[in-house]
Design a protein around this nucleic acid. Sequence first.
DNA 1: AATAAACTTTACGTTTACGTAAGAATTAAA
DNA 2: TTTAATTCTTACGTAAACGTAAAGTTTATT
Lengths: 149, 149
Amino acid sequence: MTKKTYSISELSHEFELTTRSIRFYEDQGLLRPEHRGTTRIYGNQDRVRLKLILRGKRLGLSLAEIRELFALWDQTPSGSEKQLLLMLATIASRRAHLEQQIKDIAMVQQELDIAEQRCTEALAKLRQEMSEGRVPTPAKGSATNRKVS
Amino acid sequence: MTKKTYSISELSHEFELTTRSIRFYEDQGLLRPEHRGTTRIYGNQDRVRLKLILRGKRLGLSLAEIRELFALWDQTPSGSEKQLLLMLATIASRRAHLEQQIKDIAMVQQELDIAEQRCTEALAKLRQEMSEGRVPTPAKGSATNRKVS
DNA sequence: AATAAACTTTACGTTTACGTAAGAATTAAA
DNA sequence: TTTAATTCTTACGTAAACGTAAAGTTTATT
């Protein structure tokens, strides 16, 4: 069984963010810890939420967008037909967004591949020249490295 | 052959952002259009850059981070061995970041799957009840939909 | 009992990424 | 040539997401 409750500093250490941020998320309606007396007590529910918040942020979502996702998630599907259809549309839209991100990532990865290759080759060349006792030759004008007229 | 030059408004229409943003990116050193007389002239190079900027933003990168990626990309690998190794490390780090994002996306997609399923089921149930002339039953307390004490 | 450690609220400050005029200059059209 | 459209610079404004004190409680420790 996982731990039942957490203090704010425990969470801040575990997830490496400030207590300020955690309280701010509560301000924004993303967390609802129990307020026992003067201090906050976070349950597993809250911990999971926090994890989801951070995941959302890594994907570039704003806190407002994350809040919407939570609302989406929280709604036990008990609404009207119109509500449910709207929700399905929202989900589809989110999905499209994620798919765009996947494409973007793939492209950036390609670029990194190329950059890494160029870099590795240059390194190899450099080392070979060194071993031959030559003076390293500066590479000449690549397409993106021209003098700014 | 693609068009050779673009005005700022052409680009702003094509990519659906304001001219303000485009000039701002220049301010931040992300674009370097030609300044002919009083107006800016953007080449294909600039267009590609702009596309990369937007891709980076979709992945949640800040303009500063995008600028670093450009610097990374622009450096013809002609540096010292130390420089090159540092660059490879940076590339590796970027790669790790992207892989984390892929994982994040996969998890969110799973959640969307579940949400969509719940939603679709609820919709089906609703319609069946309607066809039977019954009054729709409100769903009872899910784990995330409890009354806030 | 006094001090430290962790927690609280309140509130002003800061960075990023633009928005939004305002006013001047240039170019195109009527 | 007057008008209209596009572009420019300058500059103040703003929303988001916290940072950073300040000053006061509560709990734990010596």
